[in-house]
Nucleic acid binder design. Structure first.
Length: 828
RNA sequence: GCCUGGGUGGUGGAAUUAGGUAGACACAAGGGACUUAAAAUCCCUUGCACCUUGUGUGCGUGCGGGUUCGAUUCCCGCCCCAGGCACCA
């Protein structure tokens, strides 16, 4: 055995062994309990970064731990391989997105192997493979049949730099999530997935996911944004129809003094036609539409508007209400029109002040006698309260009045109670090349025609010239876009938009259960065995995007008959970022640590150990070069412990407990305490940092015992038991060194196939235990008592303690509190 | 503004699950041993203050109160930091 710990050769040896013997390949086995562990698959951007290393290390520990505990563990890996960076890189480097992508995959797969992760590589998936996305195209067709995929024209988020449309979820405070370009609104024909069809289930099920972090669920709840209210109709004064609004405050209807419409509202042009205001309105609408989405949405713009020249009638007061176009009203929420109640809505208040519109108070705070006076209002009173100046409803409380007023109008056909959501349908068309083609054809005669199932996949052509401006080459690639209509056989044009890459990642976890299936998307039996994912691990940044889309997609697949679960991920762990010098690692900050360099210098086990030890998984991890050194030092120390004593250790008898000296009994107790602690820390809370600390304590104690018990005949059996415990329980975290040490100690069976150790409760028991003695709540002494001492005995021993005596003096005892096996507090 | 986390030594972090020794484990720092020397390794010290230097006293977990024999942990009121949402009617 080498005296010095040299990770390079050991790690290579075991990685090759794991690869060659295919130990991580798994199959369905009804006789064993399954455990599906999944980490979010990476985009093949070129190289693995530290965030990946951390994510995948955490997952690997859990996978190996569960495997040793006897579960049939599915632990797959693949590539989220479609996406824009491939196109950009290809244009820049004069290569092809496919080549760039597959080259990156090869490099990164090799990096993952060097980290020793326990993946079943036979299940590897790349989403850009037609053998994968053909099934996605099939899902699309089925969704089209059932109305879950549809095409419509609407205002969409457009990023001019990326030359493509973005989903709402991909717009972050008005900017493109990838390149920070301000997003503009553009009217386009787009394909949508009807995620709103599942809005109630998506929201309600957030209450049935106890294994998810609270904050992720809250983010999804906020994103879905259910609000209950009323839909009201305001008749136009001209008698020419009415305007529909959504409001959560029907109780304030008597204070509604005007209406505000979004610039895109379809009635705007009719309302101002032929009026003196027409030119001004059209000009305002024009400017409003052009304003950037971020300015318009972030509330930065001053409230502005213009009178359309038309009036509505307030159905309760009968008063005339001027109809305005206002820059703060969003077409995309509710009906694109709001009733304005300036006394009780701050936005309407500001608007009314600016344009000198009436402010009618209709709510007073509950409990106070006087309603605030109109002229005195300096801001809107937005709370609930008691209705005033509201006809027959005066005196009611807001909550009851909302329903009463709506019901009263409903009798005249002017209102209904309704629920409104912030969530909108998912626009999935992307004007990009490197994505899965949408299997649709446009025929002049037949219109929109789906590609027949038998003609799938619609293969993305590889022989394209990428365009310098970044736009998709598909619309100018005749062999692709030119098609025959499946219905009439005539000339037709293929859809040249591709799907949002979030579609691929919405179902890959299901495909891992049967990646080789070539006559169908999902094998019902295999999916049933493995799904749902028992533990999913990934970054918090996908709290809404990927995790919401996947939940939606699983419901779709369930309803079109592909799987039986309602939710994809039973438990979710969101790990924190990797930080260095106070910032997230990034090229622009220049604080990137390259995993390759670290593996080269210290080996994979050191890198893994540091990632696990420096912080609990859900917190951000502060990268520290010295911390890495420390991890390496610990592994070297462990190595030396074995290599310096290898012969004595190998010939040591099996430890059975029995009569041991105090030091050795203590070590044995520590050994079993450590097994217990590590088991519970990993199983219950994924707190690897404290598990490792416990192992370090045990190692420290072994070194201590060497000093104190050199000549004790029982030394080696006890030490061997301790050391083997260290090796076994550390092996999910640092698998290479442990496997090597295990072998060096003479074991023939793989450590990987060794069952997780059980602690011996008898070994945990001590004959004497330490009791802390407090006087008036302050620590004054420690005493050692027999483990089975009664409260009375503990009290007697404490009171006999000279230090305790000193503090008590001759004062009488007022109270004595004994906490079993821990502490006694004597109150005087 | 709303929602969710969080605030503990010089640093990362323990202890928060049922209230019971605050600072485990590590990093950094300082001292010592080994060595011609260095590296590596091993040992010791390390929350703050004070003194009579001892299982010493006092203080100490963002701040102020409360409950309790006892509060980092529970309750009330504040402050600060991070993340998410935000003109959503």
């Amino acid at each position: 055995m080498e005296q010095k710990y040299s990770p390079k050769s050991i790690e290579k040896k075991w990685q090759q062994y794991w690869d060659n013997s295919r130990v991580f390949e798994v199959h369905e086995d009804g006789s064993r309990e399954k455990y599906y562990l999944l980490e979010m698959f990476p985009y093949p951007s070129g190289r693995i970064h530290m965030g990946h290393v951390r994510n995948y290390t955490i997952g690997d520990v859990v996978a190996r731990f569960m495997r040793m505990r006897g579960y049939n563990v599915l632990h797959p890996m693949g590539w989220d391989a479609f996406g824009m960076p491939a196109e950009n890189a290809a244009i820049k480097a004069g290569t092809h997105p496919a080549k760039w992508t597959y080259d990156n995959i090869d490099y990164m797969r090799n990096q993952l192997k060097q980290l020793g992760f326990s993946y079943d590589w036979s299940r590897e998936i790349a989403t850009c493979d037609p053998a994968y996305y053909r099934w996605e195209q099939l899902f699309f067709l089925k969704m089209y049949d059932s109305g879950l995929a549809y095409r419509k024209s609407s205002y969409v988020n457009w990023c001019s730099k990326c030359q493509t449309v973005l989903a709402n979820e991909q717009v972050e405070s008005g900017l493109c999530w990838r390149c920070d370009t301000p997003v503009v609104q553009k009217e386009m024909e787009q394909w949508f997935f009807r995620i709103t069809h599942y809005v109630d289930e998506l929201l309600d099920n957030t209450l049935k996911l106890p294994g998810w972090p609270e904050r992720v669920l809250v983010m999804q709840q906020n994103w879905i944004g259910r609000s209950t209210g009323s839909r009201l109709l305001f008749p136009l004064e001209s008698g020419d129809g009415n305007i529909q609004v959504f409001t959560t405050r029907a109780d304030t209807l008597f204070g509604a003094t005007f209406l505000s419409l979004a610039a895109e509202h379809p009635k705007v042009s009719d309302l101002c036609r032929g009026k003196p205001e027409e030119a001004a309105v059209l000009d305002f609408v024009q400017r409003a539409k052009q304003s950037k989405r971020n300015e318009r949405e972030a509330g930065m713009l001053e409230k502005e508007g213009v009178f359309t020249g038309s009036y509505c009638i307030n159905p309760q007061t009968g008063k005339k209400m001027p109809v305005y176009v206002a820059n703060f009203v969003l077409m995309a929420y509710g009906t694109g029109a709001v009733m304005a109640v300036p006394a009780h809505d701050q936005r309407d208040f500001e608007f009314a002040k600016k344009y000198d519109l009436p402010i009618d108070v209709v709510i007073k705070p509950a409990g106070s006698a006087q309603p605030p006076l109109t002229g005195d209002l300096t801001r809107a009173y937005e709370e609930d309260g008691i209705l005033v100046a509201s006809g027959e409803f005066t005196g009611m409380e807001s909550e009851a009045a909302r329903i009463a007023i709506t019901e009263s109008l409903a009798k005249r056909g002017l209102a209904e109670l309704t629920v409104q959501h912030r969530l909108r349908d998912w626009g999935i068309s992307r004007q990009r090349y490197w994505g899965a083609p949408i299997p649709m054809v446009y025929c002049e005669k037949c219109g929109i025609v789906p590609v027949p199932e038998k003609d799938l996949p619609v293969v993305l052509p590889l022989d394209v010239e990428l365009l310098e401006n970044g736009g998709s080459p598909l619309p100018v690639h005749k062999p692709f876009y030119s098609a025959k209509c499946p219905q009439c056989g005539g000339e037709a044009r293929r859809e040249t938009d591709t799907m949002d890459t979030f579609v691929e990642s919405s179902w890959y976890f299901a495909r891992y259960t049967c990646p080789d299936l070539d006559n169908g998307a999902l094998d019902k039996e295999r999916v049933k065995y493995w799904m749902p994912v028992d533990q999913y691990i990934g970054g918090i940044e996908h709290a809404v995007l990927h995790l919401l889309y996947s939940r939606f997609f699983v419901k779709v697949l369930r309803d079109i008959g592909y799987l039986e679960v309602d939710e994809p991920f039973k438990n979710l762990l969101t790990q924190g970022m990797v930080i260095k010098d106070g910032f997230k690692m990034s090229k622009s900050k220049g604080n990137v640590v390259d995993p390759d360099d670290m593996i080269q210098t210290y080996g994979a086990d050191t890198v893994r150990l540091f990632c696990l030890f420096a912080a609990p998984p859900e917190k951000d991890l502060d990268w520290s070069d010295q911390g890495v050194e420390g991890s390496f030092r610990f592994l070297s120390r462990l190595w030396r412990l074995v290599s310096d004593n290898i012969e004595a250790m190998k010939s040591a008898a099996v430890c059975e407990g029995g009569n041991l000296s105090a030091d050795l009994a203590a070590l044995r107790r520590k050994t079993h305490q450590t097994i217990k602690k590590v088991t519970e820390d990993i199983r219950e809370r994924f707190h690897f940092n404290t598990a490792i600390a416990a192992v370090m304590e045990l190692v420290n104690q072994i070194y201590q015992v060497f000093e104190n018990c050199k000549d004790d005949p029982m030394l080696w059996p006890v030490v061997r038991e301790a050391l083997e415990a260290v090796i076994v329980v550390s092996s999910p975290m640092v698998p290479h060194i442990c496997e090597e040490l295990w072998q060096a100690l003479g074991h023939e069976k793989l450590l990987l196939d060794t069952p997780w150790p059980k602690w011996d409760d008898r070994a945990l028991k001590a004959e004497e235990i330490l009791i802390v003695v407090q006087v008036n709540g302050k620590l004054r002494s420690r005493i050692s008592v027999p483990a089975d001492a009664t409260d009375k005995e503990i009290e007697e021993i404490s009171l006999a303690d000279p230090r305790v005596r000193e503090f008590i003096g001759d004062k009488p005892l007022r109270k004595v509190v004994v906490v079993p096996k821990k502490l006694i507090n004597i109150v005087i």
